[in-house]
Amino acid sequence: MSARLARAASSLVVIAVLLAAWELAVGYGLLKAYQFPPPSKIARGFVELSLTGFPTGVSLWTHTGVTIWRVLQGYVAAILLAVPLGLLIGALPVLDKLSAPLIVFCRSVATLSLLPLVIVWFGAGELTKVVLIGYGCFWTMLSNVIAGVRYVDPVLVRAARSFGLQGPELYREVVLPAALPRIFAGARMALGVGFMVIVGAEMIGTIQGLGALIMEARTFYRSEITIVGMLVIGLLGFLISSGLAGLERLLMPWAGNLDQVRR
């Protein structure tokens, strides 16, 4: 515990020293303030962004809320579609073999490359962003659900069969719980994908959302606002992924440290 504390303290020191050096470097004119806005300016940007907003009236919280709402819609829709479909495909080897190349390909399609097509179909509004996020999350989730149920430890399946379980019962009682860790990992990966996609998708054709915020700020040479936006995006991603990890531990206390298991 004290070792972890020491490590955290040294991390803080490193970051503090770096921030101070940065501030000084700009103060002495070694770095250009508009390219490398010093921490003090970023802090002022943060205050402005949360009170007045950028553009005026659209506060940081609005941008954040809009982004979260978009990600959430696409993500939830993708999970709701991918989980049942994945469980079905994973249960039927023939279906799995029929669909495998297609799924691999669809997963390889760069989600943002669909942007022009989706704009043609749904216009440049909200739906386009939600669809893109949904697409990215869907294939990530789908392939993880399928892999989860397909690659259950055969010993567990044999053990269950030795107790007379078979067919749907075997699937429900053993294959499904055994696949849960992988399914959860997929859900976490999918959310990461969702955040990747939203930032890109918001850079085109909108003024709300964190992606739009950082792009807009650049247009007006407000790099400190851009940096605040980036930090919020990073923080959001971090909070959500640790939240999901906590949820995993809560729901699957039996699984132990999943990252360790996978290594």
Partner: peptide, 16 residues
Amino acid sequence: GQGQGVVFQQHALFPW
């Protein structure tokens, strides 16, 4: 299920 009970090598307990 015809009266056979099986004990496997390690890691055959259901972890959940």
